[in-house]
Design a protein around this nucleic acid. Sequence first.
DNA 1: CCGACTTTGTGCACACGTTCACAAGCGGTA
DNA 2: TACCGCTTGTGAACGTGTGCACAAAGTCGG
Lengths: 256, 256
Amino acid sequence: MVDRRGEGDEVGTTTSKPPAESVADVRERARAIPEAAVARLAVYLRVLSGMVEQGVTTISSEELAGAAGVNSAKLRKDLSYVGSYGTRGVGYDVEVLVSHIERILGLTRKHSVAVVGIGNLGHALANYGGFPSRGFPVAALFDIDPDLTGVPVGGIPVDHIDDITSICADREVSIGVIATPPQAAQAVCDRLVSAGVQCILNFAPVVLQVPDNVEVRKVDLAVEMQILSFHVARRADEAAVDVVNGVGVDGVVIRP
Amino acid sequence: MVDRRGEGDEVGTTTSKPPAESVADVRERARAIPEAAVARLAVYLRVLSGMVEQGVTTISSEELAGAAGVNSAKLRKDLSYVGSYGTRGVGYDVEVLVSHIERILGLTRKHSVAVVGIGNLGHALANYGGFPSRGFPVAALFDIDPDLTGVPVGGIPVDHIDDITSICADREVSIGVIATPPQAAQAVCDRLVSAGVQCILNFAPVVLQVPDNVEVRKVDLAVEMQILSFHVARRADEAAVDVVNGVGVDGVVIRP
DNA sequence: CCGACTTTGTGCACACGTTCACAAGCGGTA
DNA sequence: TACCGCTTGTGAACGTGTGCACAAAGTCGG
């Protein structure tokens, strides 16, 4: 829904475009916010929401950067992707910043979520308070087990996975969450895609194949653990290097 | 524990080092595997494990890259960080590759895990089969609720959070998982750190402050959702750009 | 109104990661 | 053994993201 809102009008710089700018150029700039910056913006937003609750009205880049765990230059650059809404010599108005980040992240619109696979993780997700409170209402739950159909989980009755297409369309689901066993994940993904869902959050430890117009993010607990494991090993290696001076644990230097 | 194992000895390249190499150089190379590559190596490892079960003995970079969802050049570069274990003209021996990736990721050693916060998510994590089956046995569970103490979850009795220091030391916990409400996360983190845990996987939506020698990875569901939301919005913008030719939804071009 | 001080926004240089393209190396074949 | 086709491993080019450092722009006190 394209709702033109008053607050966005003073952007100004938008209007001063050279006349000969191609569609490709504009599209290029539209995608110009780095993925990493988007992730950090979401973090800033959470920190800022906390500030609002504490009654803070103004914050400097230094303070916000500290609270978000990044350096202030990076923070300012990230915010510059959003626009120039700070006041030099003063800092940023917290509420203004919140509303602009929300706009950029597309949070002015509610995004209904469907969770597929109501096992341990699915239960946890259905009950997770962080979704609805941040603009992501859980609109539907699905499982393949007929015994679960109709059982309410977190206040929402579970539907059978065969009804996924019609229900997702009805309830305007825009984000699908896959919390099934790995064997089922690709099939579920295909169904979600054919139901018109364009964004998928995948907890199953498989690499999903999707068309180009669908965005997938994956959360893989085993991978996270293995990355941590790598760092444990690297630390052990470095400690060994300090002692032995040149050869790591197991007699292996990581990059020969 | 430094256990020198036979399999690593034929590495060869390790021994042919120029004599005048500083400790700093070696340390430099030891950290030379990019974080992003480590994450992908974990994915390759999972795909390869599946191959082993299917009886595949040899695989080319092209095939493995397809299965892992990356291009083959990147895959080969990632594997080159691990070492040169392929055969030109043929491909990689699956089992050899598995064992070398496991070695690099530090999976030759078991890493005991403690889960703190036995709510919905904590339950799911304690019951998650993917941890123990991949070398991450769940050795301890903690919660602040005394009523939970002694109650077994996923076969392991919950301990009270006050005992965290001694129990983590006893059971040699090397990875702590924080699944508490956000208010409690920093305190729990501090306790884990003082218990000697050097790696933390944080599910709480807060930025943890830790000493330099502690590695933190965070999994933030709200942030993931917001990134997806951004992509939904960007798509809408691009569609609008195609029509209006230059101005996005809300009259705002994302990077002025 | 002016000058001192503070903080933003950004140009630039650098580092990191990705992709390309091809030489080097191996197995198979005659 | 010599050749041929295939696949790896990697140097080098490229693009993206990060960090520095400073000009621009605002506030505040006098």
